[in-house]
Amino acid sequence: SEIVVAMYDFQATEAHDLRLERGQEYIILEKNDLHWWRARDKYGSEGYIPSNYVTGKK
């Protein structure tokens, strides 16, 4: 599975969105859409994140 790191904070506005915290790692579950990826955080929460807010883990 692909691990990404959040470059920016993202506040979830929709129920299906996942909040991003800058510097935290997330697991990508689905990339069915170019701009919104389904991800899981370290607490096990899942939701959609803006793909341009994250970068591949170095």
Rank of each mutant, 00 (worst) to 15 (best):
35 H>F: 13
23 G>W: 06
54 V>I: 07
7 M>T: 07
3 I>T: 09
9 D>L: 04
55 T>K: 11
17 D>E: 15
44 G>T: 02
26 Y>G: 00
4 V>G: 03
12 A>Q: 08
39 A>Y: 03
38 R>N: 03
29 L>E: 00
38 R>K: 14
17 D>K: 15
58 K>S: 14
58 K>D: 14
45 S>V: 13
40 R>L: 08
41 D>W: 04
49 I>D: 01
22 R>C: 11
7 M>W: 07
55 T>L: 09
17 D>Q: 15
51 S>D: 02
14 E>A: 13
23 G>I: 02
57 K>L: 13
48 Y>K: 07
12 A>Y: 04
56 G>Q: 14
27 I>T: 11
25 E>R: 08
38 R>E: 01
42 K>M: 12
23 G>T: 03
14 E>G: 15
27 I>Y: 10
32 N>T: 14
20 L>G: 01
53 Y>Q: 05
57 K>A: 11
35 H>L: 13
33 D>T: 10
55 T>Q: 11
44 G>Y: 03
47 G>R: 02
22 R>Q: 11
29 L>F: 04
13 T>L: 12
19 R>I: 08
18 L>R: 01
26 Y>C: 02
8 Y>N: 06
11 Q>F: 14
23 G>M: 05
19 R>D: 13
26 Y>V: 04
52 N>S: 15
11 Q>R: 10
16 H>S: 13
36 W>L: 06
2 E>Y: 13
24 Q>Y: 07
45 S>E: 12
57 K>V: 13
13 T>W: 10
13 T>K: 13
16 H>F: 11
15 A>W: 11
29 L>M: 06
3 I>K: 07
1 S>K: 13
22 R>D: 03
13 T>S: 11
39 A>S: 03
57 K>Y: 10
5 V>W: 10
16 H>W: 14
46 E>C: 06
54 V>S: 01
1 S>G: 14
50 P>A: 04
24 Q>W: 06
22 R>M: 11
21 E>K: 09
2 E>T: 09
49 I>S: 01
31 K>I: 05
47 G>E: 01
34 L>C: 15
36 W>M: 07
38 R>L: 15
55 T>C: 14
58 K>P: 13
18 L>G: 02
9 D>R: 03
9 D>T: 06
32 N>A: 12
23 G>P: 00
31 K>S: 08
53 Y>V: 05
43 Y>S: 08
39 A>D: 02
45 S>Q: 15
56 G>N: 13
49 I>K: 01
5 V>T: 09
56 G>S: 15
21 E>H: 09
51 S>A: 13
29 L>Y: 02
43 Y>A: 09
42 K>A: 09
28 I>Y: 03
50 P>E: 03
42 K>C: 08
6 A>V: 03
2 E>M: 13
38 R>G: 02
52 N>Q: 13
41 D>Y: 03
27 I>G: 02
20 L>N: 02
24 Q>D: 07
5 V>A: 02
10 F>N: 03
19 R>M: 10
49 I>C: 04
30 E>T: 07
45 S>A: 14
14 E>S: 15
54 V>T: 05
56 G>A: 15
56 G>E: 15
55 T>S: 11
45 S>K: 15
26 Y>E: 00
14 E>L: 12
54 V>G: 00
48 Y>A: 04
33 D>I: 06
31 K>M: 08
22 R>S: 09
6 A>H: 01
39 A>T: 02
33 D>Y: 09
5 V>I: 14
46 E>M: 06
29 L>D: 00
9 D>V: 04
33 D>K: 07
56 G>V: 14
32 N>M: 13
30 E>Y: 07
29 L>W: 04
25 E>Y: 11
16 H>C: 15
52 N>F: 10
37 W>C: 04
52 N>G: 12
38 R>S: 03
18 L>C: 06
15 A>V: 12
57 K>Q: 10
57 K>W: 09
23 G>D: 06
25 E>M: 10
19 R>N: 15
9 D>F: 05
24 Q>K: 08
43 Y>R: 07
45 S>N: 15
37 W>M: 04
37 W>D: 00
2 E>I: 13
46 E>Y: 05
24 Q>S: 10
50 P>Y: 05
42 K>V: 09
